[in-house]
Structures are given as structure tokens and as C-alpha cells.
Design a protein around this nucleic acid. Sequence first.
DNA 1: GGCGATCCATACTCAAGCGTATGGTAACCG
DNA 2: CGGTTACCATACGCTTGAGTATGGATCGCC
Lengths: 192, 192
Amino acid sequence: MNASSKPERTRLSAENWEDAALDVIAEQGVGALAVEALARRLGVTKGSFYWHFRTREALLQAALERWEQYGEREVIAQIEAIPDPRERLPELFRRVAHELQPHRVYAALLKALDHPLVVPVMARVSQRRTEFLATAFREAGLPPAEALNRARLTYAAYVGFLQLNFTLGLPRISHEDFDAYVEHMIATLIPA
Amino acid sequence: MNASSKPERTRLSAENWEDAALDVIAEQGVGALAVEALARRLGVTKGSFYWHFRTREALLQAALERWEQYGEREVIAQIEAIPDPRERLPELFRRVAHELQPHRVYAALLKALDHPLVVPVMARVSQRRTEFLATAFREAGLPPAEALNRARLTYAAYVGFLQLNFTLGLPRISHEDFDAYVEHMIATLIPA
DNA sequence: GGCGATCCATACTCAAGCGTATGGTAACCG
DNA sequence: CGGTTACCATACGCTTGAGTATGGATCGCC
């Protein structure tokens, strides 16, 4: 079950390439996904790559599919496990706010929305998450139409925050200020 | 005062190139900004370009500066002209929501945050707009700390909305649904 | 109306990055 | 333990797009 770290002298599989691709995407964006650079990163050459994948696009496609599948599983499951529906949203907000790592790929993909391959993936993921939020808002007491709009608003705020404070390094908000911001979000977006 | 249309047989200036660059950015993104393509679009060749600009990056830089300067002027002025402070924010929301054109460059630049040149520009612009929002929220009656957080939240929602519904073409929300969404935003984000 | 400055065309060079061809080595299997 | 299969190295071709060199056309101005 370990084959995704750095310098393992073993031979590579397609999944290794996909994981490495996602790492590069998270660190330097989709544009920096080049096969020769990736090969160097993995300690091999292009010859290896073109055995596993027919083209560069094929790798990107596979990596995106991989990310889409193994992406949100945990968070959604954890939140749905919370018994009181009215506690789910605040908990979701706080949890998401303090896990930076999983958002890096998402943020990187937001900056790559010109690429035709990432658009449908992001569309599906965002759609699912928004719907998840909508049901959560309904369970929290909002009428359906309002719940959907609130979900859109909330998810847009999440996406925008990623762009402004994550990739763009806006005035590097302090830790306690950030916590205050999260609580402010909870107070304004979640019905009492 | 007219020199930015398509097929004017006159000779070109640096400003013409910058405007054309912004058009391309708005339509196809920063990545599609290539000098030979731009030259074709303007009916000339690279020879012309490299007389006006030292490099491709120089053009991008100049175009971004141009956009940053002549960008928001009008909106802010118009809003500040509204006498009743409590009417400014709803009016701002509705106005911004129905002017799609000016947001195209901004949306395109959001997708180009990997490029080192656009980051500082976007940082400055977003910073200024957020501060503008913050004072508006203060004038609307929110205490300073809360006003700042509400401004952050609001602007993040704006940015996220651009990404999700503009560049990404999410479930193509209908016109009346969109209006309902805007009103929901107003009701949720603006203090009564 | 000629002359320097401005603007543009043509024809190159050069580097990056994808993809291909082909031969080599290590694993696995009978 | 020989041979097939899976994986990788090396060396090449090809395209795209940036940047350069240089000469031609056109404008402004005296």
C-alpha cells in the first residue's frame, strides 16, 4: 500500500504517475505538468512515461479522475455522521477551514479552468458539493429554494476565499483574525 | 479617441496593442496571449510588435497596468454618489450582477493566478475593492471588525461566483433564478 | 521635397516540450 | 533456467512560439 513516496527504487505503475501528477498540480499548477519534468521527479525518463500513458493529456485525465474519486469521501462521511443536523454546518465550516492540504489541488484546478479537461471535472465536483450543502441547509431549517441559494452563496464564498487567500496571498491574515472570520461566516450564513 | 476597433488601416500605438491584449485575455485567457496571434488579429506582423515592446511579458505588464487604472473608476464613483449609505450596497449588488462585460477580464485573470505578473495586480485590486466594501458595510451600520469580515465574505462570494457560473458554466441558472439569487445575497449579507 | 524618425515586413535563429523508434534490463513464469 | 513480458534509457524528429536582424515603407517637419 506504499508506493507514492519519493525515492523508492522500485518500478513505477500508472498510479504512481497519477499521484505524482497531482502533487505537481497542487504545488505548481496544471501548466507545470510536463512529462520530462515529472520523469526527473520520479527518477526515470520519458521512456517510462510513454509506456504507461499514450499522451500527456491522458495522464492529466487519469489524474483528474483519480482526484475526483478519492477526493471528498472522508469529509462528507464525517459530517453526515454528526447526529444533530443543526450542528453539521458549523462543524463542516470549522473543519474545512483548518484543513489546508486537501484544498491545494482544488485551488490549483481553479486556476486551470481554461483547460478543457478540468472544466467538466470541476463542474461535477462543485455541483455535488453545492447539493450537499443545500440538503444540509434544508436540514438546518431553511425552505428548499432558500437553502439552494444559500448553498450557492456559501460555496461561492469558499471558492472565492481559496482564490483570494490561498493562491493569491492577500494581506496574510493572522491566525486569530482568521478564526474570527470563520465564526463570522458561521454567524451570517447559517440560520440560528 | 477611437483607435481600439478592428480594422483601422492606420498605424498602431502601444495602447492599441494593450487594448487588443486585454480583449484576448477576456476572450481566451492569459495563456492565449501570443504575439504572432495578436499581430494577425491587428493585421500586422511581429515586426510591429517588437518595435513597441521589448518582450511578451512587457506587453502583459503594460496591459495589466492599463486595466488596473481604467478598471473600476465608474462603478465606485456611481455608488458613492448615492446619498443614502444604506441604499448603496443593495444597489451595488444589483448593478454588478447585471453588468457582465467588465467582469470578463477579472474572471480571466483569476484563472491566471499562476502567472507571477498578475498576482500583485489582482492582490491590489481585490484589496482596494474589499476595503471599499468594508467602509460601505460600516456606513450601513456594522461595527468595524464585523464590517471588514463581512466585506471579505462578500467579495469572496463575488469571486467564487465568477469562477463557478462564469468561466465554469455551471447548470446555467435561469434569469429569474439568478435574480432570486441576487436578492437572497442581499438579504443574507446586508444588515437590515 | 528631401531627410531623419517612426513603424512595419520578411526571414531567420533558438529553446522547450511532446511524441516516436528502438534497444536494453529486470521481473516473472513455465 | 530459458523465454516472454513489463518496464525503462537513449537518441532522435517535429512543432510552436519567442526573440533578432535587417531592409523597406511612411510620416512629420524644416
